[in-house]
């Protein structure tokens, strides 16, 4: 197996286990499985952080409060009033993206072989902690959810009439562009996340193939951590900008 084949395999999602619905075999890919792991981590962390809240906060409660307050301030800055409805969504999104973009730094954990011994399923041997956001299916649905949220919040806070009017303001000529905007935004949101994460992932794989020791650790600080957090922030930032523009 040469490098390009290895790379192609690493890049593509693969089915871990499948089941049949209506005569169709449906596979659960490693993207979904990694999402489940990330969800479990996030939920356990959130439960730990919010267990017995005290009036005088200690370390862990401070962290949770600081995060929530940061998200509240961030939402308020970008969306003005009504922003409090979007805090949970944006907070969940930024946490999920931050964890999933940087999950490859935990690759030393033998999750795949562990799952293989637990379930006895050979396919789990292929499971490596790779960022699920390098799968275009996930980034597309993330972008779609964000754009649908933009449309819904626009209708919710401005009414159907206000939302329709937004498309012909300030002139009717803009109508096709405003409609096109939805597609372009979805495309650019999803492709930005996908391209950045995939690009840094490929680069890291190449660096790892050339020099397996020490050097990848240095590169991973930029490509995994910095780029991962930056892209998570950018995704949420753009989402909040779109929402803020739509509900204004």
């Amino acid at each position: 197996m040469n490098l390009s084949e290895e790379l192609t395999i690493a890049m593509s999602p693969h089915g871990l286990f499948g089941f049949k619905i209506f005569g169709m075999e449906i596979f659960v890919t490693d993207t979904i499985f990694l999402m489940w792991i990330i969800m479990a981590i996030m939920i356990i962390l959130a439960m730990l952080l919010t267990r017995n809240l005290k009036l005088v906060p200690d370390g862990k409660q401070n962290a949770a409060e600081a995060f929530v307050e940061f998200m509240q301030k961030f939402s308020k800055d970008n969306m003005g009033h009504h922003s409090k409805h979007f805090v949970p969504y944006l907070g969940t999104l930024v946490l999920f993206l931050a964890v999933s973009n940087t999950i490859s730094i935990f690759n030393i954990l033998p999750v795949g072989s562990l799952m293989k011994t637990i379930t006895g399923n050979e396919a789990f041997g292929e499971l490596v902690l790779r960022p699920p956001t390098k799968d275009i299916n996930l980034t597309v649905i993330l972008a779609l959810i964000s754009i649908i949220l933009v449309i819904f919040s626009s209708i919710r806070f401005k009414g159907v009439k206000g939302w329709l009017q937004y498309h012909v303001e300030p002139s009717v000529i803009l109508l096709p562009f405003k409609i096109m905007d939805y597609f372009v935004r979805t495309l650019s949101l999803s492709m930005r996340l996908f391209g950045n994460i995939l690009g840094s992932f490929i680069l890291m794989e190449l660096v790892f193939a050339v020099m397996p020791a020490f050097v990848p650790a240095v590169f991973s600080i930029y490509f995994d951590l910095f780029d991962g957090f930056l892209q998570a922030y950018v995704f949420v930032f753009l989402t909040s900008l779109y929402i803020g523009e739509a509900i204004e």
């Binding site: 650019s188 492709m191 930005r192 996908f194 391209g195 950045n196 995939l198 950018v234 930032f237 900008l241």
Partner: peptide, 20 residues
């Protein structure tokens, strides 16, 4: 700057996607 960079970066990403 972040907004501008992100929008400018989109072209590079589109190139990458087209290549893919």
């Amino acid at each position: 700057t972040l907004i501008g960079s992100v929008l400018a970066e989109a072209t590079a990403i589109y190139g990458l996607v087209v290549a893919l």
